[in-house]
């Protein structure tokens, strides 16, 4: 039996608003990558996706600030006044901010197109990579293992392609199926990469939902009208669920 006087500060520290951010930042990074690639290919839809990148980055940065209990202390300026290369979130702040700048200039048609597109590409890769890393760096949290660094970028791209497919980007369907397929495969294998303890926790806390999300994801291989929705919702669900259930310390204390 375990009892306490007082309590360890073991409650949830990231809430549904942070789960929302984990979805939005996937879209922001994914759209930025898409926009950059379309610009580099000289595709006619480049401008449209640049606008989407701009919107999703702005929306995510707004949500990040708005949901932060420090919002009115305006300490966020320190994100850009310090050099913290060991911090995934620091990378994310710069990746998103510079990505916003690059996509803004691209959208307005200001500045050299090619270099800006390359810069946006780089920023998008940072934005795609950092959320998974922000989880995976926490060695004490058994559910956030190294697979997070793969599942998060993959599901981010799936989210993005889901939206693109919904916008009748017919070209998006094939890569969506490919990338969501890869995400689902990783998500299916993920429980096997956990210790029995951690697997038990995942099962207890999110087991049924996890199974449902994987099932839903299979819908991406079904009808073309359904596929984008299935892809989008499964990718979003997976990201949110992993961010939420992973806030667990394990049984070592």
């Amino acid at each position: 039996m375990t009892e306490f006087y007082g309590l360890p500060n073991a409650g949830e520290f990231w809430h549904w608003t942070n789960a929302l951010h984990f979805v939005l930042v996937g879209l922001a990074g994914g759209m930025a990558l898409l926009a950059a690639l379309l610009h580099l290919k000289g595709h006619e839809e480049a401008r449209r996706y640049t606008l989407l990148a701009l919107l999703f980055i702005a929306l995510d940065l707004f949500v990040l600030w708005a949901e932060s209990p420090a919002r009115f202390r305006f300490s966020h300026a320190w994100l850009f006044l310090s050099f913290q290369p060991a911090s995934p979130i620091w990378w994310g702040a710069w990746g998103l901010a510079l990505g916003f700048l690059a996509s803004g200039l691209l959208y307005l048609g200001r500045g050299p197109r090619k270099p800006l597109a390359w810069a946006l590409l780089l920023c998008s890769l940072v934005a795609l990579a950092y959320p998974g890393m922000a989880l995976a760096v926490n060695a004490g949290r058994p559910l956030w293992n190294a697979l997070m660094a793969g599942i998060f970028p993959l599901t981010a791209l799936a989210l993005t392609l889901g939206v693109a497919a919904l916008l009748r980007g017919v070209w998006a369907l094939y890569p969506l199926r490919l990338l969501l397929g890869a995400s689902l495969l990783l998500a299916f294998l993920y429980p096997l990469t956990l210790s029995p303890e951690a697997r038990g926790h995942l099962w207890e806390e999110g087991g049924i939902l996890y199974g449902l999300i994987l099932l839903l994801g299979l819908g991406v291989f079904w009808r073309e009208r359904l596929a984008p929705w299935a892809g989008f919702l499964a990718a979003a669900g997976l990201r949110a669920l992993l961010a939420m259930v992973g806030q667990w310390q394990g049984l070592g204390l």
Binding site: V137, Q249, L253
Partner: peptide, 16 residues
């Protein structure tokens, strides 16, 4: 003064 309450440190602390 610098803290943005992002919780990264809470996530990283293995001791609550």
């Amino acid at each position: 003064r610098r803290c943005i309450a992002c919780g990264a440190c809470i996530a990283a602390c293995p001791y609550d």
